[in-house]
């Protein structure tokens, strides 16, 4: 990990982060299950008086989440001695993850204006630099890769990539 990287250690409240994450995911699945079942009831069945129709699979999945979500929570609680603390959960690098996610959101919003080459070169430069490369090396590789990919896809594969409105 880079020397000046932020160590990602959320509060663990006496238990491992994996424990809380599993509990949270279990709850999210349970809530999602309830939502799916409610939503699925709104689809008209193919046969009146039965569940056969577009709502059947979502209903089955919803029920599965309602059973499996709490099962995950319960199994986490009962297996808590097996789930370690923060040091055992490999979260990766916070800066690197943030650069990828925030950068990609930026790509989605900026690409129509800046075009494929400039947006991807900027994004690739940031991510490569954050990953520990020298800034000038990151600039060269970002420009080269973005340009080559653009050329390859537009010229050889006939894909229309956004040219942007600035250039």
């Amino acid at each position: 990990m880079a020397e000046n990287d932020i160590v990602f250690k959320p509060p663990s409240f006496g238990r491992g982060l994996e424990y809380w994450l599993q509990v949270a995911v279990g709850i999210v699945f349970t809530v999602a299950g309830i939502v799916f079942i409610i939503e699925a009831q709104q689809f008209r069945p193919m046969r009146a008086g039965t569940q056969i129709g577009p709502g059947l699979l979502p209903t089955i999945c919803g029920f599965a989440f309602i059973v499996l979500g709490p099962a995950l929570v319960i199994s986490t609680i009962f297996q808590k001695h097996r789930i370690g603390g923060n040091e055992e959960l490999d979260l990766g690098s916070f800066r690197f993850i943030a650069s990828i996610i925030i950068g990609m959101i930026g790509v989605i919003y900026l690409m129509p204006y800046l075009g494929f080459i400039l947006t991807c070169a900027l994004y690739s430069w940031i991510v490569t630099w954050v990953a520990g490369a020298k800034w000038w090396g990151a600039v060269i590789s970002a420009v080269l890769i973005s340009g080559s990919v653009y050329y390859l896809f537009t010229e050889f594969l006939r894909v229309v990539l956004p040219p942007g409105i600035i250039f």
Binding site: I100, I108, C120, S124, T128, A131, G137, A138
Partner: peptide
């Protein structure tokens, strides 16, 4: 260095996801 590969992989990911329907 993996740092340089990451940048390349990300651009391939973007172009791959975009090219399916030519949509962001």
């Amino acid at each position: 260095p993996r740092a340089y590969l990451n940048g390349g992989i990300l651009i391939f990911c973007i172009v791959g996801a975009f090219a399916v329907n030519n949509s962001l």
